[in-house]
Amino acid sequence: MKSTWRVRADERYWWVVIGLGNALVTVIDVDPYRRGMGEGIITGGALYARVGAVNAELMRGK
């Protein structure tokens, strides 16, 4: 399972992909308005909600 984040750093935007065990998978330089699309992109449902909950816990440092 992987999680993708859009991050702004050094006045640029990046897509950062994190895998299991907090492993950095890839970093892609992107346009600030670009959105991920395609059949492999999950934008709703139980899995999306679970990943959101896990990410929220990680951001709180738990």
Results as ranks from 00 to 15, higher is better:
residue 58 L to P: 01
residue 54 V to A: 09
residue 19 G to R: 05
residue 11 E to K: 07
residue 12 R to G: 06
residue 6 R to K: 14
residue 19 G to S: 10
residue 27 V to W: 00
residue 30 V to I: 06
residue 27 V to Y: 00
residue 20 L to C: 10
residue 17 V to T: 15
residue 26 T to D: 10
residue 8 R to E: 02
residue 36 G to C: 06
residue 7 V to F: 02
residue 37 M to C: 09
residue 53 A to M: 13
residue 31 D to F: 00
residue 46 A to F: 13
residue 46 A to Q: 14
residue 33 Y to R: 12
residue 21 G to C: 08
residue 7 V to T: 00
residue 23 A to F: 12
residue 37 M to S: 11
residue 30 V to T: 01
residue 10 D to K: 05
residue 14 W to T: 04
residue 5 W to D: 03
residue 31 D to W: 02
residue 16 V to H: 00
residue 38 G to F: 01
residue 2 K to E: 14
residue 11 E to V: 06
residue 13 Y to W: 14
residue 54 V to P: 02
residue 13 Y to Q: 05
residue 42 I to T: 13
residue 40 G to Y: 03
residue 24 L to S: 05
residue 50 R to H: 12
residue 30 V to G: 02
residue 62 K to F: 10
residue 38 G to S: 07
residue 37 M to I: 14
residue 62 K to V: 05
residue 9 A to P: 01
residue 36 G to F: 03
residue 26 T to Q: 08
residue 16 V to R: 00
residue 60 R to P: 04
residue 3 S to V: 15
residue 20 L to I: 12
residue 19 G to F: 13
residue 35 R to K: 10
residue 24 L to A: 08
residue 41 I to W: 00
residue 52 G to Q: 09
residue 27 V to Q: 02
residue 4 T to I: 11
residue 56 A to Q: 07
residue 5 W to N: 06
residue 13 Y to L: 04
residue 32 P to H: 02
residue 6 R to V: 04
residue 42 I to R: 09
residue 62 K to H: 09
residue 3 S to R: 12
residue 56 A to C: 02
residue 51 V to T: 12
residue 47 L to F: 06
residue 8 R to D: 00
residue 46 A to R: 13
residue 58 L to W: 07
residue 33 Y to Q: 07
residue 59 M to F: 12
residue 57 E to L: 15
residue 3 S to L: 15
residue 6 R to M: 11
residue 24 L to H: 07
residue 28 I to L: 08
residue 19 G to T: 08
residue 46 A to Y: 13
residue 56 A to F: 09
residue 53 A to K: 10
residue 42 I to L: 15
residue 13 Y to R: 07
residue 38 G to I: 05
residue 10 D to N: 08
residue 27 V to T: 11
residue 42 I to W: 04
residue 22 N to V: 09
residue 9 A to L: 05
residue 53 A to Q: 08
residue 60 R to Q: 06
residue 25 V to M: 10
residue 36 G to L: 12
residue 34 R to C: 10
residue 44 G to D: 15
residue 28 I to T: 13
residue 43 T to A: 05
residue 36 G to T: 03
residue 15 W to S: 03
residue 40 G to R: 13
residue 49 A to Y: 14
residue 1 M to H: 09
residue 30 V to N: 02
residue 26 T to F: 00
